[in-house]
């Protein structure tokens, strides 16, 4: 017979790898990649966040309207002082600093995303004199100058995304929610750097920065009580 049918030999068109072995190999590779990505995000999240342009940060929180303080004069005074300090501090060009005084007994003050500084009446009442107030504002301005709020926020968001990747949750809503204007956690290095810049700016205007020590005393007494 001229025409013949030869049965195809096994194992030519099919790669003989046990499927479970391939699964183990691929799965461990994928898990390693995800772990590496999560680790990188957690490590460099803050650094990456600082690269976000100021303009983008401003538009991110543009919807925020702080409640107008009843004591207009106090707010105006604080804002003018802030402007004088900011002129000494080489702030990022596109950043519009907005200082708000909140009518509340809370003894606190913080800088947050979008160039906002929130000062609580409770803290302002305890500040002994202008030099200490200037130091407080300069300290918050320095946070804005070094873009600490976006770095802290980015770090937190990156950790959340990293955890989300690891745990396989598809809910990455941290980016939208995460109360943009709540207090962010700054690291010790950020605080020290902000203190240094603030002291420098206050000395440039007043010639001394004794208010810094007094402000620390006030904050310490609040923390212990």
């Amino acid at each position: 017979m001229r025409y013949r049918d030869i049965p195809p030999p096994e194992g030519i068109n099919v790669t003989q790898v046990h499927p479970l072995k391939e699964l183990a190999l691929l799965l461990s590779g994928a898990v390693a990649a995800v772990v590496a990505l999560a680790f990188l995000l957690a490590t460099f999240g803050g650094t990456l966040a600082r690269m976000i342009p100021v303009k983008m940060e401003m538009s991110l929180v543009s919807g925020y309207e702080a409640p107008e303080h009843t004591q207009k004069e106090l707010t105006r005074f604080v804002r003018e002082l802030g402007k004088r300090l900011a002129d000494q501090m080489e702030m990022p060009e596109e950043l519009e600093v907005q200082i708000h005084v909140v009518d509340d007994d809370t003894v606190n003050a913080f800088a947050t995303l979008g160039g906002h500084i929130i000062l609580y009446q409770g803290l302002l009442e305890r500040i002994p004199h202008e030099n200490a107030l200037a130091f407080l504002i300069a300290h918050e301005l320095a946070h804005l100058k070094y873009r600490d709020p976006i770095a802290a926020f980015g770090q937190g968001a990156a950790v959340n995304i990293g955890l989300g990747l690891l745990l396989g949750s598809s809910n990455l809503s941290v980016l939208e929610s995460a109360g943009l204007l709540t207090t962010l956690r700054f690291s010790r290095e950020m605080e020290t750097r902000a203190d240094d810049a603030a002291i420098e700016a206050v000395i440039r205007i007043y010639g001394h920065a004794t208010g810094a020590a007094e402000l620390f005393r006030v904050l310490k007494s609040v923390a212990t009580s």
Binding site: N13, V14, T15, V17, P19, E22, L23, L26, L27, G29, A30, A33
Partner: peptide, 25 residues
Amino acid sequence: YFKRFLAVLRNLFGGRVTAYESLMD
């Protein structure tokens, strides 16, 4: 389902999709 999952993982790294080879054969 198993072969599909293997193929999805394979999509990430490239290479022979051995899971589908036997099916096509």
